Simulated scan of single mutants.
Amino acid sequence: MPTVEVTDLKDGDFLLDVREDDEWRAGHAEGALHIPISEFVARYGELTEAAPQDGRVHVICRSGGRSAQVAMYLVQQGVDAVNVDGGMQVWAAAGRSVVTDEGQQGFVL
């Protein structure tokens, strides 16, 4: 499974958050696309519309398990996708911004 470290992500990299709604509401990376893993197959078209055609999709969840499943699925579909190692827990621990939909300071649930 292709993976990337949180510290290797740059501002502007396309990020797909596959955590569930309650986790997203608590806090997420600003600018990430949210499609919960439980709805992913039904909402796959949203990703194809939003993702850069020639760019990489960085898939993230809380700790890396669910995002690894989605990243593997995307790779099988021919998408350049990687799993973000350690997920939002490592994201927050690395001091990266976690926000709510209202733009307030969020937290990882």
Rank of each mutant, 00 (worst) to 15 (best):
F14G: 09
L33M: 12
W24H: 08
E23C: 09
H28S: 08
D22Q: 12
S38N: 14
R43C: 01
I37G: 02
L16M: 05
E23T: 11
A42L: 07
F40V: 00
E20A: 00
V41N: 04
D21K: 14
F14R: 08
H28Q: 08
F14M: 00
A26V: 11
E23F: 07
F40A: 06
F14N: 02
Y44T: 06
G27I: 15
E39N: 06
L16G: 00
F14P: 11
R25I: 08
A29Y: 06
A26G: 07
E23S: 09
G45L: 14
H28P: 13
A32Q: 00
E39T: 12
A32R: 01
A42H: 12
A42C: 01
D22P: 13
E39G: 00
I35A: 02
A32S: 14
R25K: 15
E30S: 07
A32H: 06
E46G: 11
V41L: 13
L16Q: 13
A32L: 04
I35E: 01
P36V: 12
G27Y: 15
E23A: 13
A29F: 04
D21H: 03
D17F: 05
D17W: 09
E23V: 13
V18W: 07
E20K: 00
H28M: 08
E20D: 10
R25P: 03
L15S: 09
D21A: 15
F40H: 00
Y44E: 15
V41P: 01
D21G: 00
A42Y: 09
G31R: 03
D22R: 08
A26W: 05
A29M: 12
E30H: 03
L33N: 04
E30Q: 10
A32Y: 05
L47C: 09
H28N: 12
P36R: 05
R19F: 01
F40Q: 01
G31M: 09
W24E: 05
S38F: 00
D13M: 03
E30T: 11
H34P: 04
H28V: 02
R43H: 07
D21N: 12
E23W: 09
S38L: 02
F40D: 02
A29N: 06
I37A: 14
S38H: 04
A32P: 01
R43I: 07
V41Q: 12
E20W: 01
D13Q: 02
H28W: 13
A42P: 01
E46F: 03
D13Y: 03
G31A: 00
R25W: 09
E30L: 06
A29G: 12
R43E: 15
V18S: 10
V18M: 06
V18Q: 09
L33H: 07
F40E: 02
A29V: 11
G45T: 09
E20Y: 08
V18D: 03
L15D: 05
